[in-house]
């Protein structure tokens, strides 16, 4: 993708990393990054320094990862069990096969 803006280039880079690391979820990366920037705009207008915004975001990230551990609702017990795996893959591919 051809992008000029340096910040937008970073988002493209992030999406590419996601693609090579996980192979999916690139749209989510872009929307999340876009929204974080959107929120940051308000903070900057309030007079915060970008460094403070970054440190705030980093704290939130740390907490968010902590919370993630407590939000596990399902765990695949046997990765060789077709039925169990089917259930998990369905949520990933169904939206992509809608006509």
């Amino acid at each position: 993708m051809e992008v000029q803006h340096p910040a937008a280039k970073l988002i493209v880079l992030a999406a590419k990393m996601q693609e090579s690391e996980c192979g999916d979820g690139t749209n989510f990366v872009v929307t999340l990054a876009g929204e974080l920037l959107n929120q940051a705009e308000g903070l900057l207008r309030m007079g915060l320094h970008p460094i403070q915004v970054v440190s705030g975001y980093e704290q939130a990230l740390k907490k968010a990862i902590e919370f993630l551990e407590s939000h596990i609702y399902y765990q695949v017990k046997d990765i060789r069990n077709v039925d169990e795996v089917t259930k998990c893959l369905k949520s990933s591919i169904s939206p992509k096969l809608q006509e």
Partner: peptide
């Protein structure tokens, strides 16, 4: 879509937990 599905499985093998 299938490529994404296979990738999902790859991640599932890495970490079988779901939110």
């Amino acid at each position: 879509a299938i490529d994404d599905g296979v990738n999902a499985y790859k991640n599932l093998v890495k970490d079988p937990r779901f939110v």
